[in-house]
């Protein structure tokens, strides 16, 4: 069993490295990301589209990698995972963040609420001052993120939404928020 597991581990780590078959490279944050049914596999997969700069700029691969490092450090230091799930792992007090980048709530609720012009900026604004933009009774606390930290987290969430997770979560966004 351990021998089999060793082989599968080598293969899995290769498939899931940034730039592997199921996990895109970090500079995918410069592109549009969607989520659509793949009829041959029978579930939804991320769709990488045309170029779409983040925060008004394009990141080189080393820059994007640095940004991801910071994003992950923010996520660990604030223990986001003790309220939220990433790929469904973590805690269940807040919503799953796997496809948060694609959440219709950004354009339908938080962009108007924050007055931000882009989804990315609305996310930064929310993450820096969640107590000012609640959507319901259960609220996210202010975790004292700097602007640079918040931007790094947003970039991280954008990259995560481009990971091929074998169809989890299913039918993301099937119920559309009323607007």
């Amino acid at each position: 069993m351990l021998v089999v597991l060793t082989f599968l581990t080598v293969d899995s780590l290769n498939v899931t490295r940034a730039g592997g078959i199921q996990v895109p490279n970090y500079d995918v944050i410069n592109q549009e990301i969607g989520y659509a049914n793949d009829w041959s596999r029978g579930f939804e997969v991320p769709v990488i589209g045309a170029s779409e700069p983040l925060f008004g700029r394009t990141y080189s691969l080393p820059e994007a990698t640095e940004l991801m490092k910071l994003g992950k450090a923010v996520i660990q230091s604030r223990a986001c995972m003790d309220c939220h799930t990433f790929f469904g792992n973590g805690a269940y007090y807040g919503p799953d963040l796997t496809k948060s980048w694609l959440d219709p709530a950004w354009s339908q609720i938080w962009m108007p609420m924050t007055g931000a012009a882009t989804r990315g900026d609305a996310m930064v604004e929310f993450l820096m001052h969640p107590e000012q933009y609640p959507t319901w009774t259960r609220q996210m606390p202010n975790l004292h993120l700097t602007r640079a930290e918040a931007q790094a987290v947003v970039a991280y969430l954008k990259w995560m939404s481009a990971v091929d997770t074998n169809g989890f979560p299913a039918h993301f966004g099937r119920i559309q928020t009323q607007n």
Partner: peptide, 11 residues
């Protein structure tokens, strides 16, 4: 998950 599609609103 099944009906809502796991967005904030579904949550």
């Amino acid at each position: 998950r099944a009906q809502g599609g796991s967005t904030l609103q579904a949550f």
